[in-house]
Amino acid sequence: MIIGIDLTWVKPGKNGGTEFYIRNLLDGFKTLKNVNSYILFVADNNKESFKSYLDDSRFKFSECHVNTEKLVSRVIWKNTQLYRLMKKENIDLAFFPVYDMPLYRCNSFKIVTVIHDLQALHYPEYFTNVEKAVLKASWKRVVKNADKVVGISNYVKNDIEEHYGTKNVVAIHNPIVVKDAFVDFQGLQEKYGIDDNEYYYTVSSLLPHKNLKTILEVKKKIVYDNIALPKKLLISGVGGKQLAEIKRYLDDYKLNDNVILTGFISNEERNTLMKHANAFVFPSVFEGFGMPPIEAMLLGSKVLTTKCTSLEEVTMDRCYYVNDAFNIDDWIGKLKEIKEKEKRTIPFPEYEVKKIAQEYLDLFDSLV
């Protein structure tokens, strides 16, 4: 089977979780010993970042003369040229790792695409009216034109089916790779004024669905009431306009010594902070998949999160949960409960890249 994979949307280092997802999946395809061929449709400004796959003779580039940073010209090119190029490559199946596919259907090959979440339907306030209209139209078109749609969790699958009335959706979880790479914790101790096992850590933003404000209120109560729990919280991921907002909060409540904003940190630093925290807290109430809690458990951290949307599903009851994501006392009660619990690395063989890649290939085989 000749599988064409659209990578013209990838902005190296800028796509967040979706970029990790596709690179992990490509790694999985590479580990599987099969006779499939993989045509990578790459853009002018991202092809170098995928060059390592060319050392496997089953992979080849089909160079698309587009720039991922130039949205309008990329969309025009994709809708006028991509299917033509795919037919020229004689592919059997076109795989779109995000919903960004041409407006019309091509019957020359099978089509599979992925929807990672329907955030604009649940949090429309994040988007302009134009963005909402485009996203809703795109999802509706994708569901109609693709032979199969992949939802990255059962939650997403059910959400798509409920909103678009289709049964043409399958759930395949994300592949996850956590590299066993760390920095010297002593350096982080000195930088942030923390001690081993005496702080909490989270990766978040101030977007409402991330629910970070609840954790800030939890930390405020721990400090103000002198509750016998770690008094420090480290937060990675807050930037831009959100940074000023959270700094005002910390100033107003005199929490600057207790809540530390790390800014951008390397994966090695993040891994180290996860490993040495008393617990990794993840208060989000909306995730299509939610990789950070799983990554933290793979690194040996205790994890306390919510049961909202996909989180209970993808963490597979292997961590600790609050019953009410917005209840401060519920969070504090659970933090007390797990404070002295033993840390241990929790494996997730279900998300190994080879296994997930095989699930995708099984799906592709069922269509071709």
Rank of each mutant, 00 (worst) to 15 (best):
P175V: 00
V143F: 10
I346P: 06
L311Q: 04
I356F: 10
I194Q: 09
E313Q: 04
K339R: 14
K355M: 08
I91H: 10
K148R: 15
E131R: 12
V218W: 02
K231C: 01
L26D: 14
G288K: 12
S310Y: 04
F185T: 06
V143P: 13
T68H: 02
I111N: 04
V35W: 02
V150Y: 09
N15L: 08
S49N: 11
N67P: 01
K247E: 15
H209V: 07
Q242S: 12
K232Q: 14
P124T: 02
Q242W: 02
R248M: 13
V134R: 13
I76E: 06
S57P: 09
Y200G: 07
W77R: 05
A296I: 12
P292E: 12
K247G: 00
P124S: 05
S73R: 11
F182R: 02
A325Q: 05
Q242F: 05
G28P: 15
D251Q: 11
W331P: 11
L54V: 09
G239D: 13
T113V: 07
N327A: 14
E350Y: 12
S138D: 14
G239I: 01
I115A: 04
E350L: 00
E217T: 00
I39C: 11
I356A: 09
Q189L: 00
A94E: 06
K110N: 13
E190G: 03
K191V: 08
G187E: 14
S52A: 07
E340V: 04
Y83L: 01
E340H: 13
A228N: 15
N197C: 05
L234M: 00
S57G: 02
F20V: 14
E287L: 09
Y53N: 07
P97N: 04
V143N: 12
T31P: 01
T8W: 00
Q358W: 03
L363I: 11
G290E: 12
M1S: 14
Y320Q: 10
H116P: 13
K167L: 03
L188H: 07
K14F: 12
G288T: 13
A357Q: 08
A120R: 03
T68G: 09
N46C: 03
